[in-house]
Amino acid sequence: MRKTEIYNMKSPYREDLKISGYSFGHGRKSACIVGSIRGNEVQQLYVCSQIVRKLEELEAANAITADREILVVPSVNHHAMNIGKRFWPVDNTDINRMFPGYDLGETTQRIAAGVFEKVKDYDYGIQFASFYMPGDFIPHVRMMDTGKQNTSLAGLFGLPYVVVRKPKPIDTTTLNYNWQIWDTNAFSLYTMETDFIDEVSARQAVSAVLRFLTRMGILKYNSHNGYISTVIGEEELTSVRTSCGGIYRRLCHPGDEVHMGMPLAEIVHPYEGNVISTVLSPTEGIVFFTHKKPLVTENEVIFKIIRRLHE
């Protein structure tokens, strides 16, 4: 294991922002794994730390294939994480909306450019990401539909689902999108949590990465085969909305099978405590996403359901 400096930026008074990378094996740039790019992505940091620990053991046991190099970057924006912010602390810009970056541009463009210079040119890019809608997902691999995506490869992680998203203009500046444009096969892995650590899904994520690296011939490792992934387009998910604001009581969880008309959640009057709305499932299927926070607004998407899919 070799610890290297990926990028360094001076602060007026804080210590330098030092972005570190951990390299394993030597030779062809085979796989790059990036953890937390936003300051609240604690689960993503934790998963990467566990991958580093495991890869260190595997490297010591000569389990990394010859002429294969793996780079892990556990954290990019710990300047935000250390002070409880999600985005770059000075101007609140999102580093994951700045790729491929610009080394003569604004601060977060420079950080993105410095990181991208080191993480590009790998065969496979794996990012532990978080979604702009806060909530709980079924663990899955997410890919951008750039025309270069390969869902068959994504299935080799052995997670239950592979989701393909048609990119919106704002997605064109994410790491995942730019990896693909620069000919890296890019995958974003979503586990159950972001701000808190969920050990079960963290272990599942570590296993998924080791399984993928093994199947791509980068690691020599025996692991369970995992799932045969179901591939879904994001637009195929049915969104379920609230009809009013209030206190949210979740009745179903990601992975639950639901049928049409089944209560998914209740909205409770914030002063009087009575149920003012019961949110019913408009379809049968598997719950893919649920809102998690205790409050909801009117017209909020609180569930996404994979239509007509059964356990």
Binding site: C244, G245, I247, V296, T297, E298
Partner: peptide, 10 residues
């Protein structure tokens, strides 16, 4: 206009 969680509209 949309209802916020507690006694207010956006």
């Amino acid at each position: 206009s949309m209802e916020l969680p507690v006694d207010e509209k956006l």
